[in-house]
Write a protein that binds this DNA or RNA. Structure first.
Lengths: 186, 186
DNA sequence: CAAGATATACTCACTGAGTGAGTATATCTC
DNA sequence: GAGATATACTCACTCAGTGAGTATATCTTG
């Protein structure tokens, strides 16, 4: 019911904020959320129907969403979920906070954030892109320093670092291109 | 004890094969495995000590490894693990099977495989790199086809695909450079 | 030389990720 | 009229990953 201990996870590695985002647009039920996730964010999240229900259950237990059963004439009953005050606030905060510098986090979390920012206001999306690019540039600088400091003998760790640097650089390029790609250039 | 149902996971997204790999080199205990993971593969896997023990427990339950308690004079007792026949075979198979085409899988799984291949025989590592590059090239071709087929209206999914394509391309570059980087050119 | 940090070695209980099978009805298709 | 597909959700499970706790031995430092 309530959470005495806050979640141990960064927890943005699951589509829970995507679900919150859809619910922020309008209340809806699990089945529909699943469809929207696969239709609109299918290239970002690969998720199963039951996973959607798992997340809904957790969010409800944590008091971030609330569901009410709605019976229908012919079709199965369904539970309409909406964000609570707490859930709304959590989502708004998330929407404006830039992602950390892990490749996976950017690939899925930032992309999701961008999606909802675009649906909200283009200017928000624009500032998110800029902030994210800045975060990556500083992350890259740190990684490059680590690489310089890693002794040449640590061949394997150097290789791993080089891979991460390449990945981040390619994300940076993508960020630069994504504004025009969305057909919104200035 | 035994597993009636085989694991539902691709399961190479956890460091279990890294652990198996160290055990294939010589039997050892959890604490040492943790240290080797962080020292030698620290840029690939970021793992906690208890997670190592979790994995050891699972592998033992699945009959892939076997532990024997060894008491020491002054220091705490420890459990020396070694691969069973099944575990040995599983590792050898894994070591020779190229990774799928997900960015994360390549970043962590392939890199781990390369590490153990290098420790074994350079020629094995060489053929792994070639096979992996080929797998990525064909994955890239598929993604590019999908991108062509995605209607222009699906802006967001197109963007997601473009990101993945960029990531894979950068991995491909890295693969091309990694042989010389290891100081083993030719 | 005693107090405290660090190293050795592992256990336990927990939350959350993710899967797959199952349930039940309604509508669409051939 | 039979069978596939769509709507809508439940349940039980395995595995990922964290954080706190236990207990002893050795190293460090004032």
């Amino acid at each position: 019911m309530s959470i005495s201990r806050s979640s141990p996870y960064a927890s943005a590695l699951s589509p829970e904020f995507a679900i919150s985002g859809f619910l922020a647009q309008r209340p809806t039920h699990g089945y529909d959320l699943y469809q929207r996730l696969t239709d609109e964010l299918g290239q970002v999240w690969y998720i199963s129907l039951s996973q959607v229900y798992n997340i809904l259950k957790r969010l409800e237990d944590q008091g971030l969403i609330l569901g009410e059963t709605e019976t229908q004439d012919k079709l199965p009953a369904r539970r309409l979920f909406h964000l609570t005050e707490a859930g709304q606030q959590r989502f708004e905060t998330w929407l404006r906070t830039p992602t950390g510098c892990s490749v996976r986090a950017i690939r899925v979390e930032f992309t999701t954030r961008l999606y909802f920012a675009l649906a909200r206001e283009h200017s928000l999306a624009h500032s998110l892109i800029d902030a994210q690019a800045a975060a990556i540039r500083s992350g890259l600088a740190r990684l490059e320093t680590s690489l310089d400091e890693l002794p040449a003998g640590q061949r394997f760790n150097r290789l791993g670092l080089a891979l991460r640097i390449g990945q981040l650089t390619s994300i940076l390029d993508w960020l630069g291109a994504c504004w025009p790609d969305l057909g919104l250039s200035e």
